[in-house]
């Protein structure tokens, strides 16, 4: 995947030199092993800062609406999931297609940094990616692992690795995965009895510090004032009471219903390693099963919770 970075840099240098875009949003090398950081590049000299590797797990669609110029375009490098969130942004009128120049990047998945860290007792001091082979170094040992074995869960179950919308592709499309049981994780929770399900979610969020990194890393969360920050009326308490933590996670998830692309940025961002996708995955499964809907694939269709249809499968209104 890192071979496409030269092409990305060439495309970006050309776009900036010709003034076709005002800036390029991409990823830059991080300051510590296994890290990358979103960056806005405005001059062709800085294009060399751009990288693309298996640590670029955040979703760049999240950065687009903050930096839109009044006139002209910005370019954004987009993996499959980023492109789906750009579509969602367009469907929800956050950005228009002609403001964007999308550099599509086919993706073979991002690594689960916690899974890799768990292979070591001490801290990782170096991380080298060479195709599917990752070489990870700590003071105690050097380990070679296959990227396939340490992919994030959302990447393992991803069926849209190629960008769904783009102006140019930085590489040939990659083969899409087909899955026998795309929602095994949801089914696993659903098979528990209600008390065990409740206990599962209580255990899941017990270390939540309410930093809201999950919300802020999510491209769907662009409300000017989030419900947790409202003070008149105040919908939810601000402390560490379980009730308030539950309310935050439940409502955050529900606000993503029919919109979530399962990009995994929320889990990537969580400092406490909470798999908040356990909430949104259920919604994604329902959206697919009830409405045949996957978010961010079609710029023409309205999202299922955005329309009224006489053949709505729900019978909830009594």
């Amino acid at each position: 995947m890192d071979t496409c970075i030269e092409k990305i840099r060439t495309i970006c240098a050309d776009l900036l030199a010709k003034g076709k875009v005002q800036k390029v949003i991409g990823f830059a090398e991080g300051s510590i092993p296994m890290a990358s950081r979103p960056i806005a590049v405005t001059s062709k000299e800085d294009v060399a800062k751009l990288v693309f590797n298996a640590t670029c797990g955040l979703n760049l669609a999240n950065y687009v609406s903050d930096v839109l110029p009044k006139e002209g375009k910005i370019a954004v490098t987009a993996k499959g999931c980023d492109s789906r969130n750009l579509v969602t942004h367009m469907v929800e009128n956050q950005v228009s297609r002609d403001q964007l120049y999308i550099i599509g990047v086919p993706c073979t998945g991002m690594v689960d940094k916690r899974k890799i860290a768990a292979l070591f007792e001490d801290e990782i001091t170096d991380f080298i990616e060479d195709g599917d082979t990752l070489t990870i170094v700590s003071p105690q040992k050097k380990e070679k692992v296959s990227k396939k074995d340490v992919l994030r869960h959302n990447c393992r179950v991803c069926t849209h690795r190629n960008p769904v919308v783009f102006d140019v592709m930085a590489a040939e499309p990659v083969e899409e995965q087909s899955l026998d049981q795309p929602f095994a994780d949801v089914d696993h929770i659903a098979a528990m009895d209600p008390a065990a399900r409740w206990a599962h979610f209580q255990e899941l969020t017990k270390n939540c510090i309410r930093c809201y990194a999950c919300r802020n890393a999510c491209p769907l969360c662009y409300c000017p004032t989030c419900f947790v920050d409202e003070s008149s009326p105040q919908w939810v308490g601000k402390g560490q009471d379980k009730t308030d933590i539950n309310t935050f996670h439940f409502l955050r998830a529900f606000h993503c219903a029919g919109r979530c692309t399962d990009c995994g940025a929320c889990v990537e961002a969580c400092p406490m390693g909470i798999n908040v996708r356990d909430f949104t995955r259920k919604l994604n499964k329902d959206a697919l099963e009830l409405f045949g809907w996957e978010a961010g694939l079609d710029m023409e269709k309205r999202p299922p919770l955005d329309v009224y249809s006489p053949d709505d499968p729900n019978d909830f209104i009594k």
């Binding site: 949801v186 929770i189 659903a190 209600p194 008390a195 065990a196 399900r197 409740w198 206990a199 599962h200 979610f201 439940f250 998830a253 529900f254 219903a257 029919g258 909430f279 259920k282 919604l283 329902d286 959206a287 009830l290 919770l305 729900n314 909830f316």
Partner: peptide
């Protein structure tokens, strides 16, 4: 969907 998610979390529908 909201009812489904509540039930999934172990809250009575």
């Amino acid at each position: 969907m909201m009812g489904n998610l509540l039930e999934h979390m172990g809250v009575e529908r």
